[in-house]
Amino acid sequence: KLKCQHCNHLFATKPELLFYKGKMFLFCGKNCSDEYKKKN
């Protein structure tokens, strides 16, 4: 199981990947990825 970088939920589906500031982040979906980008 993977943990979403934004909402901290565990998920087993294909993660949404975001490469940001030289790091890779995993998200449970596009919505969390977009929210994370807005906040950072």
Rank of each mutant, 00 (worst) to 15 (best):
P15A: 08
N40T: 12
C32A: 00
F19W: 12
K38S: 11
Y36C: 03
C32Y: 04
F25C: 12
S33C: 08
F27T: 04
K23G: 09
N8F: 04
T13D: 05
C28P: 00
C7L: 00
F27Y: 10
K14F: 02
K3D: 03
L10S: 09
N31V: 08
L2W: 06
K14W: 02
C4E: 00
P15S: 06
G29K: 13
G29V: 03
L26S: 14
K1G: 03
M24Y: 03
T13K: 09
K38W: 05
C32L: 00
F19A: 14
D34H: 06
K1D: 12
K38L: 07
C7T: 00
K23I: 05
L10C: 10
Y36W: 10
K37H: 11
F25L: 14
F25W: 11
N40H: 06
N8R: 12
D34R: 08
K21C: 10
F19G: 09
H6M: 14
L18T: 08
C4Y: 01
F27Q: 01
G29C: 07
K23A: 10
L18R: 08
Y20N: 09
E35V: 08
Y36G: 04
K23C: 04
N31F: 03
K3Y: 05
S33W: 06
K23E: 15
K39V: 12
N40L: 03
S33Q: 13
K30F: 07
K23N: 13
T13E: 09
L2D: 15
Q5R: 03
N31R: 13
C7F: 00
H9W: 08
T13Y: 11
E16M: 05
C4G: 00
C7K: 01
C4D: 00
Y20Q: 12
G29T: 05
F19M: 03
A12V: 03
P15E: 08
H6K: 01
P15M: 02
Q5Y: 09
F27L: 08
D34K: 15
F11V: 14
L10A: 14
L2C: 07
K39P: 09
Y36K: 01
L18M: 07
F11T: 13
M24K: 15
L17D: 10
C7E: 01
L2K: 14
C28E: 01
N8V: 07
L10T: 08
L26P: 11
T13C: 03
T13P: 05
N8Q: 14
F27R: 00
L10P: 14
C28A: 00
K30P: 06
L26C: 13
P15V: 02
S33P: 02
F11C: 07
N31L: 09
L2M: 14
P15Y: 01
F11K: 05
C28F: 00
E35A: 11
A12T: 09
K30R: 10
K39Y: 14
N8D: 08
C4M: 00
L10G: 14
S33H: 03
K30D: 05
M24S: 13
K14E: 10
A12Y: 03
F27G: 01
K30N: 10
L17G: 10
N40A: 12
K39L: 06
N8C: 12
P15G: 04
T13S: 04
E35L: 07
K1T: 07
E35C: 02
N31C: 07
K38M: 09
F11Q: 03
K14R: 07
G29S: 06
K23H: 10
K14L: 07
Y36E: 05
L17Y: 08
F19K: 15
K3W: 03
K14P: 04
K1R: 02
C4H: 01
F19L: 12
K30A: 09
F27N: 01
C7R: 00
K21W: 05
E35G: 12
K23Y: 03
F11P: 10
K3N: 12
C7P: 00
F25G: 11
H6S: 08
Y36D: 01
H9P: 01
A12K: 13
C7N: 03
E16D: 04
A12W: 05
H6V: 08
E35M: 09
L26K: 15
H9V: 14
K21A: 13
K38R: 12
L17K: 15
N8G: 12
F27C: 11
L10K: 13
L2G: 15
L17S: 15
L17E: 15
H6Q: 07
C7H: 01
G29D: 02
C28N: 02
Q5G: 10
L10H: 12
F27W: 02
N8Y: 02
C32S: 00
D34P: 01
E16V: 06
M24Q: 15
T13Q: 07
T13L: 04
L18S: 13
Q5E: 02
K21L: 12
A12H: 05
L17N: 15
K1V: 02
D34N: 01
G29M: 08
S33R: 09
S33V: 09
C32R: 00
D34Y: 08
H6L: 06
L2I: 09
N40D: 13
K30Y: 11
K30E: 10
E16K: 13
G29W: 01
K38G: 11
G22C: 09
K3G: 08
K30Q: 07
K37E: 14
F11M: 05
S33D: 03
G22P: 02
C32D: 01
C4Q: 00
K3F: 06
C4W: 00
K3P: 08
K1W: 01
N31H: 15
K14M: 02
D34E: 11
Y20W: 11
L18W: 12
C7G: 02
K38E: 12
K37R: 10
L26Q: 15
K30T: 06
C32P: 00
K1Q: 03
G22T: 09
F25V: 12
K38Q: 09
P15I: 02
F25S: 10
N31P: 12
Y20K: 06
P15W: 01
N40V: 11
T13N: 05
C28R: 00
F11G: 04
H6P: 00
G22Q: 12
C7Q: 00
C4L: 01
H9L: 09
N8E: 13
Q5I: 04
L10R: 15
K14N: 07
K1S: 05
H9Q: 14
K39W: 07
K3H: 04
K21N: 11
N40C: 05
T13M: 06
E16G: 02
L17M: 14
Y20V: 12
C32V: 00
T13V: 07
K1H: 03
C7W: 00
L18E: 06
C28L: 00
L26R: 15
F19P: 15
L18V: 12
L18A: 11
Q5H: 15
F19C: 05
K3L: 08
C4V: 01
T13H: 10
Y36H: 12
L26W: 09
L10M: 09
C32F: 12
L18P: 02
H6Y: 15
E35D: 10
T13W: 04
H6C: 10
K3V: 05
N40G: 07
H6T: 08
E35W: 06
F11H: 02
G22L: 03
L17F: 04
K14V: 05
K3I: 06
N40E: 08
D34A: 10
G22M: 06
H9N: 12
C4S: 01
K30I: 13
N31M: 05
C28M: 01
E16H: 02
K3A: 05
H6I: 04
F11Y: 01
E16Y: 03
Y36R: 02
G29P: 01
F25D: 11
M24T: 15
K38P: 04
G22D: 03
L26M: 12
K37D: 09
Q5L: 06
C32G: 00
M24R: 15
P15L: 01
K38D: 06
P15D: 11
